[in-house]
């Protein structure tokens, strides 16, 4: 979001828009990704620095910033996790803050420990079938967390927002597991 402030500093107009509004999309977790891709291309076709090669330096710089912003916005909205974090941010919750001391339910802690162990076993046994199964499991849990998140964020209200944040923190953990599974898979595939 720092870039955002920089842009405001140069151009206090119209760009109070958030990432969703930039693409003319409803501020919601459930967005049409094809529509996003299409509008992303349309916006880049209008603001990309290649359209301003013959413009003066300021205008070129403005176009660079606008194209950068469009890229950041599209990247944020494309990823379900980043989109969820961004939605929390629009509701005044910074997931990256350092003083977070919210609760993690015991059963989720147990699930974390169990899944870590499972992944370690998969890696040690170099078993691609088990890895596929593990990834499917991570996907399934992630989907149910996303569903939970949608319910909470759309209801608003303080309690719901706190619950929504908890869901996002769980999604973050699942995302990390998925990344580790990716790395193990890369090893299996000899990449």
């Amino acid at each position: 979001m720092r870039l955002w402030r920089e842009l405001q500093h140069i151009r206090p107009v119209d760009l109070q828009k958030n990432f969703f509004e930039l693409f003319n999309l409803p501020v919601s977790f459930q967005i049409d990704l094809d529509l996003l891709a299409e509008r992303y291309r349309a916006i880049q076709s209008s603001v990309h620095p290649d359209r301003y090669v013959n413009a003066d330096k300021r205008e070129l710089r403005l176009s660079l910033q606008y194209a950068t912003l469009a890229n950041e916005a599209a990247e944020t909205l494309r990823s379900p996790l980043k989109r969820a974090i961004y939605l929390l941010q629009l509701n005044g919750i910074d997931v990256a803050r350092e003083d977070y001391s919210g609760p993690m339910e015991d059963d989720f802690l147990l699930l974390q420990i169990g899944m870590r162990e499972e992944l370690q076993n998969v890696a040690e046994q170099e078993d691609p079938v088990a890895l596929r199964k593990f990834r499917a499991e991570v996907n399934e849990i992630t989907l149910s967390l996303e569903k939970d998140f949608v319910g909470r964020i759309e209801e608003k209200g303080e309690t719901n927002l706190i619950k929504a944040e908890t869901s996002v923190r769980k999604m973050q953990f699942m995302h990390k597991l998925k990344q580790e599974a990716d790395r193990i898979e890369e090893r299996f595939l000899d990449l």
Partner: peptide, 14 residues
């Protein structure tokens, strides 16, 4: 003005 033109361009593209 340049900024407003760029915004207008985006609106027109969408």
């Amino acid at each position: 003005y340049a900024a407003r033109r760029m915004d207008a361009g985006v609106r027109a593209a969408l």
